[in-house]
């Protein structure tokens, strides 16, 4: 059997912790819970992360980088902004479907337990990869003359707040249809709200 590298081990801890934090909540989940889930001793866990808070910060960076990378792939395509919006919405909803723990963590842990992230994860520090990629998206849309030139956060909030809201409703089992069903209309709404007037 091939030996597991330290990096692979780190990722497996990240993935296990993501699941536990988003299912059980950040405070209830303990380090022994996480260690048990990946099948390692608590002592060994500390070889990878110095504390639960440090792990929490790593997780948000992991998600931000994952999102950033996915959006970058879309940004790099030479397609109209309207199609990019559809692709970002799709990517986000697929992620909520297939890896709900990532978005759950973002919404339920990162945004709801600010005290954990106050020191070392404030502002853009841990979400830079994701936010930067959204900046690239908006900048390009305006440059192409397809998006209305306005304040970044007004546009960002409209886009991500909307998606976050839908995923939240989905998670609460309030949506009558699967997320997939909403992709088209939501992309249209976002585009209509942001396009050049």
């Amino acid at each position: 059997m091939a030996r597991i590298t330290k990096q692979e081990r780190r990722v497996s801890i990240i993935l296990a912790a993501l699941k536990l934090f988003s299912e059980k909540g950040f405070y209830i989940t303990t380090i022994p819970d996480i260690a048990k889930k990946v099948g390692m001793s608590v002592g060994n866990f500390y070889n990878y992360f110095t504390s639960k808070d440090a792990l929490a910060k790593e997780l948000i960076m992991y998600i931000s980088e994952y999102l950033g990378k996915s959006i970058r792939e879309i940004n790099d395509k030479d397609i109209p902004t309207e199609e990019k919006i559809y692709e970002i919405v799709s990517m986000y909803f697929n992620m909520a479907d297939e890896r709900p723990e990532m978005i759950e963590y973002f919404l339920r842990v990162y945004l709801s337990n600010r005290e954990v992230f106050e020191d070392g994860c404030e502002g853009m520090l841990c979400v830079s990869a994701f936010v930067t990629e959204m900046m690239m998206f908006f900048d390009n849309g305006v440059e192409r003359g397809e998006l209305h030139n306005q304040d970044f956060f007004s546009a960002f909030g409209l886009f991500m707040g909307y998606l976050g809201g839908m995923v939240f409703l989905f998670g609460e089992k309030i949506l009558p249809e699967p997320l997939e069903w909403y992709k088209e209309s939501i992309s249209q709404n976002i585009y209509n709200a942001l396009k050049t007037r």
Binding site: G123, S128, T132
Partner: peptide, 14 residues
């Protein structure tokens, strides 16, 4: 631009 925005965003945090 991507590098610039990354740096600028981080610097603005403080």
């Amino acid at each position: 631009k991507r590098s610039y925005l990354t740096m600028a965003g981080i610097a603005k945090t403080f």
